[in-house]
Structure formats: C-alpha cells, structure tokens
C-alpha cells in the first residue's frame, strides 16, 4: 500500500541555514503520526513545505500519489490536506459560527459557489462541531474575545469543518490548560477514529505525543534523526541526546 503522504528527500534552505536536509517520511491513511524534535529542528518548516507555503529546494512531496510540491497553498488545501498553525490563526473579527461556516470545504467549488446564502445544513454542522470542542455556548461571540486555549480549540474545529483527508497539527496542545489537554487528546483520537481523518502532529509535550501517535519521526538540526513506534523513540539514545543537548 502506498502512503497517503509521501515526502522524499526534501531539502529547504533559508540563506545559509539548512532548515530541512534531505528528509523522507511517510504517513499512511487512517494513522496518527507524530513529528518531534528540539526547537529549531525544522518541524514547522517541513509542514510549511508540505502545504505549499514556500517552495522546496529539492525533493518530492506526494499526496495520494499526486505530486504537490509545485502547487499553490489553496490548491493543496482543496485536495483535503489542511494544516493548523503554531501561533493560532482564527478570524478574530468574526463570530465562532462564522469562523466555522467559512471553513467549510472548498473542494471542487468555484468562485460562483461563494454567492450563495449560507445553508442551514452547514450551520448545523458548525454548531455540532463547536459542541464537539466545547465551545457551543460561545458560538456567537467574536473569536478574538476567546482565550488563547479556546482559540486553539476553535481552530481545531475549523479544521474539522473543512472535512480534510489529512490534518497536520502544529503543536495542538501548546498553551492549553493541562486539565483540558486530556480532553483534547480524546477529541483528536475521535477525529481520527470517527471522522476518519489521518493526523500528522507536531508536539513538544512528550506525554501527549506518546499517548497519541502510533509512529513517530524525530528531527534534529534539520535532519531525520530517528523513527519508530513511541516506545522505541522514547528509549532511543540519539533522541534523548538531541533533546538534552548532548550534540
């Protein structure tokens, strides 16, 4: 079986900084895959390369067998590959419901499709998903009046509203109240199991990624350092050294 997302020998430099050096990895359909690594190891750069935010210098990126490394951001999103941001990005001047409604999938829709009055079915879906992340009571508030953690939950709900095939989450639990983190892990697992969304997750919180991911890739200094199931990664000498700064 070929992988849903296939990254092959991808390199990316910013000036003299080699942010990603010949990285290869695979994410299979229906799985939850983790991406870890110390700060500055190139995780977010790799995410941005995959979703087309900047062109890669070398290598190939395939999504469902299709080369996407030369496509534009919006076109990649329309294939069903959606990312969330480390610094939460929501539409602050709009209500939560409006944030959700405009996040509905654009797949196969043209400019003319935007000129329709908002549909009731979409409205129900938006409300259901807001309830799913626990924001139902606040659905008519402006998104910029939510707390940081709530904005993060809203962004997650917006991503689900898009009905992606694969969701790439950049540190979904950073800045979230520790008490809410378990709830979020549950919801991520549900999104995977119930909605069938493949997840590819950057995470710094080891407890979270170990309980969430089935397979983990570890980056350090822009290179792929190790990969394997959580137990293996947890005990990998190189990974521990990278995190503790033995290099």
């Amino acid at each position: 079986m070929t992988a849903m997302l296939e990254v092959k020998n991808v390199s990316k430099s910013f000036g003299a900084v080699r942010a990603n050096e010949s990285i290869s990895l695979e994410v299979h359909e229906g799985r939850i895959v983790g991406l870890i690594g110390p700060n500055g190891s190139g995780k977010t750069t790799l995410f941005s390369s995959i979703v087309g935010a900047h062109p890669v210098d070398e290598g190939s990126i395939r999504f469902q067998g299709r080369e996407i490394s030369r496509l534009r951001v919006a076109d990649i999103a329309r294939l069903g590959l959606i990312r969330t941001f480390q610094q939460t990005r929501i539409y602050g001047g709009m209500t939560c419901v409006e944030n959700m409604l405009i996040s509905a999938s654009q797949r196969g829709s043209s400019l003319l499709d935007l000129f329709h009055i908002r549909s009731a079915a979409r409205g129900r879906q938006a409300e259901d998903l807001l309830a799913f992340v626990g924001l139902h009571a606040k659905r008519h508030l402006r998104a910029d009046s939510l707390s940081f953690g709530q904005q993060k939950l809203l962004e997650f709900a917006m991503a689900l509203m898009n009905e992606p095939k694969m969701l790439m989450l950049d540190e979904p639990t950073a800045g979230i109240n520790p008490i809410l983190i378990d709830g979020l892990i549950d919801r991520l697992k549900q999104a995977n199991a119930v909605f069938g969304v493949t997840l590819f997750v950057i995470e710094h919180n080891m407890r979270v990624i170990m309980s969430l991911a089935e397979h983990i890739y570890c980056l350090a200094h822009g290179e792929l350092l190790a990969e394997g199931p959580p137990e293996e990664i947890r005990n990998d000498r190189r990974v521990i050294d990278a995190y503790l700064g033995a290099h």
Partner: peptide, 30 residues
C-alpha cells in the same frame, strides 16, 4: 453580498489572509 459565503470570505481575508488561503480559499481571485 454580506449574507453570502463571499461576504464571510472577504471578512476572513481581512482577519487573516494566510489562514484563509490555508483553508482553501482562492484569496487573490476573491
């Protein structure tokens, strides 16, 4: 116009254009 999805789309561009694009909106066209 402001009641259609187009109205929401231009609001989204105002609030965070990069996000709008990342969610699949063709921002330049809009």
């Amino acid at each position: 116009l402001y009641m259609t999805r187009f109205g929401l789309a231009i609001n989204a561009i105002r609030d965070n254009e990069d996000k709008a694009e990342a969610m699949g909106l063709k921002t330049t066209q809009i």
